[in-house]
Simulated assay, not measured.
Amino acid sequence: MLVHLGLPSSPIGAVAVTVGSFDGVHLGHADVIRRTVAAAATAGARPALITFEPHPRCVLDPANCPQSITTLQEKLALVESCGIEHAIVLRFDRELAALSPDEFVERLSAVMDVKRWVIGFDFAFGRERRGSAEWLRAHGHTVDVVPPFQVEGVDLHSRDVRRLITGGEVHEANRLLGREYAMAGPVEAGDRVGRRLGFPTANIGIEPNKLVPALGAYAGRARAPEGEFIAALSVGYRPTFGGTQLRVEAFLLDFEGDLYQQRLELRFVRYLHPDIRFPSPDDLVRQLKKDVEDTRRIVLR
């Protein structure tokens, strides 16, 4: 997949294109992308996807800027796995928001020959959201409108996934994503409290604006350079030790080695319990042992 930061610097030829934020690349997004790939094959074109960074709401309504289910890097990897050949990342700012539908389409037409648009049922673009499927058709474009993707009779939206993750219901969020929710980052130096307790953990750096699950313990997995491991995950402040810094950390089961400064991907399978302040370190250790047992049982079943 070719990634274009901004409009392509030279024409990319005939495409079937879809446009949107695609935050989370959930099952509904995957459906739109699959249809785009199929439309491109029918039209003798290449499948292309246009997305925005940052999320448009962060510019148009900063007070309600959503945290990102997927970072840009994660989003691009996911859309590539769905078959997109050209990913175009447009910086969303006031200037882009002010373009009329005519101006937006004119800019695209200068660098691609859009054979077919594949868009969601609520798609709108251009200043004051004046552009729509009807507008595109009235201006001679071929448009496929994808109906709402439903899970158990309910339309799926990225906000539903965010709500579930921030509420700790990661197993339900995973159903809507079609995969396990993940966070990734470099392993940072910690205060080695876990090692002193017999449970050495790896703390990962949290990427800016990345959605963090509810505070608590989770059963999960970790992908390290050495392979994939079952992992007891924790999101919290280490209240037993008076911590004040939010940490996302993992105890990798059946792992020995040093992960410092290596990139680690953590995947959340199921919420176990809240972030608890224990009366003593011994009480914490007893809970950690139980968390490890529960994690192994949940992940392996």
Score class of each variant (00 low, 15 high):
residue 47 P to L: 03
residue 113 D to F: 05
residue 76 L to Y: 01
residue 50 I to M: 13
residue 140 G to I: 14
residue 162 R to P: 10
residue 77 A to T: 12
residue 75 K to R: 15
residue 73 Q to T: 12
residue 158 S to H: 07
residue 81 S to T: 09
residue 150 Q to K: 13
residue 52 F to Q: 07
residue 146 V to Q: 13
residue 53 E to R: 01
residue 118 V to I: 06
residue 132 S to P: 10
residue 68 S to F: 02
residue 160 D to N: 04
residue 58 C to Q: 15
residue 148 P to W: 00
residue 85 E to I: 09
residue 50 I to W: 10
residue 92 F to K: 04
residue 118 V to Q: 04
residue 140 G to H: 13
residue 128 E to L: 04
residue 133 A to D: 11
residue 130 R to N: 12
residue 116 R to D: 04
residue 49 L to I: 04
residue 64 N to V: 05
residue 134 E to Q: 13
residue 60 L to C: 11
residue 123 F to C: 08
residue 135 W to D: 13
residue 76 L to P: 02
residue 100 S to A: 15
residue 82 C to V: 07
residue 64 N to S: 08
residue 99 L to S: 08
residue 82 C to T: 10
residue 92 F to Y: 09
residue 76 L to H: 00
residue 77 A to C: 12
residue 138 A to S: 15
residue 116 R to Q: 13
residue 130 R to Y: 05
residue 161 V to K: 13
residue 127 R to C: 04
residue 133 A to N: 03
residue 77 A to V: 13
residue 125 F to A: 02
residue 153 G to I: 09
residue 124 A to N: 11
residue 49 L to V: 11
residue 78 L to F: 11
residue 160 D to F: 00
residue 69 I to P: 02
residue 50 I to V: 15
residue 133 A to R: 05
residue 149 F to I: 06
residue 64 N to Q: 04
residue 69 I to E: 00
residue 161 V to C: 11
residue 72 L to H: 08
residue 97 A to P: 03
residue 139 H to M: 07
residue 90 L to E: 02
residue 81 S to N: 01
residue 142 T to A: 11
residue 146 V to P: 13
residue 163 R to H: 01
residue 49 L to H: 05
residue 126 G to A: 14
residue 123 F to Y: 14
residue 163 R to Y: 00
residue 73 Q to F: 06
residue 140 G to T: 03
residue 68 S to M: 10
residue 138 A to P: 12
residue 84 I to L: 05
residue 115 K to A: 06
residue 74 E to N: 10
residue 85 E to G: 08
residue 104 F to M: 13
residue 145 V to T: 13
residue 106 E to Y: 02
residue 157 H to V: 02
residue 144 D to P: 06
residue 63 A to F: 02
residue 138 A to L: 13
residue 156 L to E: 12
residue 75 K to S: 07
residue 136 L to M: 11
residue 145 V to D: 07
residue 58 C to E: 15
residue 66 P to L: 12
residue 159 R to S: 15
residue 92 F to H: 05
residue 67 Q to H: 12
residue 110 A to H: 12
residue 69 I to R: 00
residue 96 L to Y: 07
residue 140 G to R: 03
residue 138 A to C: 03
residue 135 W to T: 10
residue 164 L to A: 06
residue 62 P to M: 08
residue 152 E to R: 07
residue 47 P to Y: 03
residue 127 R to V: 11
residue 63 A to M: 04
residue 94 R to S: 15
residue 114 V to T: 03
residue 105 V to W: 06
residue 144 D to R: 03
residue 47 P to M: 01
residue 153 G to P: 02
residue 68 S to L: 14
residue 165 I to M: 07
residue 52 F to A: 01
residue 119 I to L: 10
residue 112 M to G: 10
residue 147 P to F: 01
residue 116 R to N: 05
residue 118 V to H: 00
residue 117 W to E: 06
residue 103 E to H: 10
residue 162 R to E: 06
residue 84 I to G: 00
residue 126 G to Q: 01
residue 105 V to Y: 15
residue 130 R to H: 02
residue 102 D to G: 09
